[in-house]
């Protein structure tokens, strides 16, 4: 699903955020992406979602080469990737329903279809009763779950999460992480960027570790983590 082959990213200021990154996340897998702040986690996710382009090397997502992907097709690629953000990135002047419906509206789905799919997604994250509510009235955990519902509502094959549990307490963040695991069990490829080592120990998933722009231990298989 995601294949990085000697990917470099140099920002215009000359700062090298990623150096010689090689990894492969096969379809249907789930992995963690970890490292200190500034190690390049965000840059890596930005390349996958084509907010940034690799400076060198090949990055392939869902069989598309990101270096040469035409700008006008970027929206269609992004529809194949669900993204969950640390700061939720919800629209606070719209209801929970409208927020979750946005990816479907953007993609031009039919009206009846939208209602059905939004309710299914909200049901999955346990917020079906809150569809008429404005997100500002929800707790941080609930807002994050709205963000997750929005990320999965059009059933993308790939789900990315950038520090999805950053501001939540342990119990809530376990709940959120279990949601990702359950999506993965339904066949979605999942990549979660986090610096919360607790989840990594608890869930025993492959880990990609970044340090100062390098990938330090490539692909670790289950149980190989020793922290």
């Amino acid at each position: 699903m995601i294949l990085f082959d000697h990917v470099y990213k140099r920002y215009p200021g000359g700062q090298e955020a990623l150096k010689d990154i090689c990894f492969d996340l096969p379809t249907g897998e789930m992995a963690f992406l970890t490292g200190h702040s500034g190690a390049g986690k965000s840059t890596l996710l930005k390349i996958i979602t084509l907010i940034e382009r690799p400076s060198r090397g090949q990055a392939i997502v869902n069989n598309k080469n990101l270096s040469t992907y035409p700008r006008r097709h970027i929206p269609y690629l992004r529809r194949e990737i669900g993204v969950v953000f640390q700061d939720h990135k919800l629209l606070y002047d719209r209801t929970v329903f409208d927020n979750v419906a946005l990816p479907l509206v953007v993609a031009g789905h039919r009206h009846q279809d939208i209602g059905r799919r939004v309710r299914a997604a909200l049901d999955k994250v346990g917020l079906l009763k809150k569809e008429r509510v404005y997100p500002i009235t929800l707790s941080g955990g609930e807002q994050q779950r709205v963000g997750i519902a929005r990320a999965v509502v059009n059933r993308p094959p790939l789900l990315l999460a950038d520090e999805p549990t950053g501001n939540l307490d342990a119990a809530l963040s376990d709940e959120i992480m279990d949601l990702f695991v359950s999506f993965n069990q339904h066949g979605v490829t999942v990549l979660v960027a986090t610096h919360d080592l607790r989840h990594i120990k608890r869930l025993r998933m492959p880990v990609l570790t970044l340090s100062q722009g390098y990938m330090v231990d490539g692909q670790q298989k289950q149980g190989q983590m020793d922290l």
Binding site: T49, I51, R72, P75, Y76, L77, R78, R79, V83, K89, L90, L91, L102, P103, V106, A107, R150
Partner: peptide, 16 residues
């Protein structure tokens, strides 16, 4: 601006 950024992130085309 924020709304436009979010819509672009979830795959909204310029036309939309």
């Amino acid at each position: 601006k924020d709304e436009i950024q979010i819509i672009k992130l979830i795959g909204g085309t310029d036309a939309f």
